[in-house]
């Protein structure tokens, strides 16, 4: 497997490989999201308790799930970058972090917009919302550290270390926030115990989750390609690709 992976540690090969994937990813993401959200918004029956407000679930749950998934992915990339010194893995941190931050932001905002009609408040110091907010801060920290260094290599390595420190802390933060929440307030929020969903609701939800996965993959692919170009800007192949003209070798 390593022998197969090795060429993709080089910028040019991985750029072109990702370029082959990108159109398929984008097209399938758009298609699946269109089906999933259309199904969820128009065809799925209203919830017997929450009426039509539950339709926010079709973007809230996928974005919340993926915001955590992308952090795990970023931490794995960070580990690979630190252990095997693969530069593509270093760059993928810069590609994943902004996408993950936007997903976290979406899950927070849709959560707030769902919370207002259901719980009567935009923001509740609910354990999940709190740990999601902290996740957003962690993403922003990684991003800020990555871009703080003028030498990109140092920035990428520092951000990898931070991502790994974060991933050790995430379970601790998650669990302690749950514990804190159960200590500080009673079960005001759990009036909203998870009802078993009928298939007319969870099938479009699964479609949406799958669509968000494809969309996240497409975004990360696009950003990773840009990051490769940015890092290898001085290389002749990038010059040839972006300027078109044959650059004189010196």
């Amino acid at each position: 497997m390593w022998r197969w992976l090795h060429p993709y540690a080089k910028g040019e090969a991985s750029y072109h490989l990702l370029g082959r994937w990108l159109p398929w990813l984008t097209a399938s993401a758009l298609l699946v999201l269109l089906i999933g959200i259309g199904w969820g918004l128009v065809f799925a029956p209203p919830d017997y308790q929450q009426g039509d407000s539950y339709r926010i679930i079709f973007i809230h749950v996928p974005s919340a799930m993926l915001s955590m998934g992308t952090y795990t992915g970023m931490a794995i990339a960070a580990l690979v970058a630190l252990v095997w010194q693969i530069r593509t893995a270093e760059w993928s941190i810069a590609a994943i972090a902004p996408v993950g931050a936007v997903l976290t932001f979406i899950s927070l905002l849709t959560g707030a917009a769902w919370g207002k009609p259901m719980w009567g408040t935009w923001w509740e110091w609910d354990a999940r919302m709190t740990s999601q907010l902290i996740l957003l801060f962690l993403y922003l920290g990684v991003l800020a550290l990555y871009h703080a260094f003028s030498d990109n290599r140092t920035g990428a390595k520092a951000a990898s270390i931070l991502a790994l420190v974060g991933v050790v802390n995430i379970p601790i933060i998650h669990f302690s926030v749950y514990w804190w929440n159960s200590l500080h307030q009673g079960a005001t929020i759990t009036k909203f115990a998870k009802p078993s969903m009928p298939p007319e609701m969870y099938i479009p939800l699964f479609v949406c989750i799958f669509g968000f996965m494809l969309m996240t993959a497409a975004f990360i692919t696009q950003r990773l390609r840009h990051e490769i170009l940015r890092q290898e800007l001085h290389r002749p192949w990038v010059q040839q690709l972006l300027v078109g003209a044959k650059v004189k070798e010196q």
Partner: peptide
């Protein structure tokens, strides 16, 4: 109208 929840539903979809 989304059964009266239009503002919240469309707000979340719009923001997304």
């Amino acid at each position: 109208a989304m059964g009266g929840y239009g503002f919240y539903v469309w707000l979340s979809y719009g923001v997304t």
